[in-house]
């Protein structure tokens, strides 16, 4: 129970502030376009799923989701795979240039994608990867690999080093120790890192829009071009927005205690 009336009021107001715009989006997605432009109502009067049907049956819409999913999953797999051993090295060993390298990774997480948009376009065009899923997946590695390394390092430093030493004494080789013993111990960290890689790749617009044209066009890019002959298609746009929120909203409950930690790059 809330501790007093003041807190209750504050939290209610704040949560309402957060939820009303989202409610409005859902409301819009369930209206017909004529209703949206002609009448003003706070709930749908002619309740319709037509906007969702449009998205799920029109390839130019649903392929946006498929393309986004493909490059996001590719990116998450690449990021976690390369980040796991590196994070282990950063958490356990000191080696020449480790601090510089760790800092350099951070600068990549922090660098504005706008700086990289044009060079990425030229780089991937010149090696014939323009408009492919792997191009976007690799481009997103720019900020997701450093993110994964930092988050995983934050979790791994919590695992006592004695566990490694005991395992080596028991005759485990490094790969076997890492996969059989260490990875289960940091499973929650891997989950959180994967979630954040997924999220940041899923929400990114600029690079995915610059690097794709038709075959690998992302849902975010599709959504920025919804002006049809009869003006803006608000209903469909709103429905697309709702569908884009769903992946994050589904897993939010499981990562709720780690959201602060993930955004703070494994610190906190």
């Amino acid at each position: 129970m809330m501790k007093n009336r003041g807190s209750l009021i504050t939290m209610t107001l704040y949560l309402l502030f957060l939820l009303i715009p989202i409610y409005w989006l859902i409301n819009m997605s369930l209206k017909t376009n004529t209703e949206i432009t002609s009448t003003f109502s706070i709930y749908p009067q002619t309740f319709t799923f037509a906007n969702y049907v449009t998205i799920l049956t029109d390839p130019s819409w649903y392929m946006g989701y498929v393309n986004s999913m493909i490059y996001v999953v590719m990116n998450t797999v690449i990021s976690i795979t390369v980040a796991l051993p590196a994070a282990y090295a950063f958490s356990r060993y000191s080696f020449m240039g480790d601090k510089h390298l760790f800092f350099w990774l951070l600068t990549n997480r922090m660098s504005p994608p706008a700086v990289f948009a044009l060079p990425f376009f030229q780089l991937y065009s010149s090696i014939g990867l323009f408009d492919t899923h792997i191009a976007v997946a690799l481009a997103h590695c720019l900020f997701n690999v450093p993110l994964a390394v930092w988050i995983l390092e934050g979790f791994m430093r919590g695992v006592p080093k004695e566990i490694d030493e005991t395992a080596y004494i028991d005759g485990y080789s490094f790969p076997r120790f890492f996969i059989r013993i260490f990875m289960p111990l940091v499973a929650s960290g891997i989950g959180v890192a994967a979630f954040f890689c997924f999220m940041f790749s899923w929400v990114e617009l600029l690079l995915s829009r610059t690097l794709t044209a038709v075959n690998a066009k992302s849902i975010a890019a599709t959504m920025t071009r919804t002006v049809s002959a009869s003006g803006m298609d608000w209903g469909v746009l709103a429905a697309a927005g709702v569908l884009t929120i769903i992946p994050g909203a589904l897993v939010i409950y499981f990562v709720r205690n780690y959201i602060a930690k993930g955004f703070a790059l494994g610190r906190v």
Partner: peptide, 16 residues
């Protein structure tokens, strides 16, 4: 509920 806006894609935030 508070984490919800954080995980909404940036372009959808604009759309909302």
């Amino acid at each position: 509920l508070m984490a919800l806006p954080l995980l909404i894609p940036f372009n959808v935030v604009g759309t909302i």
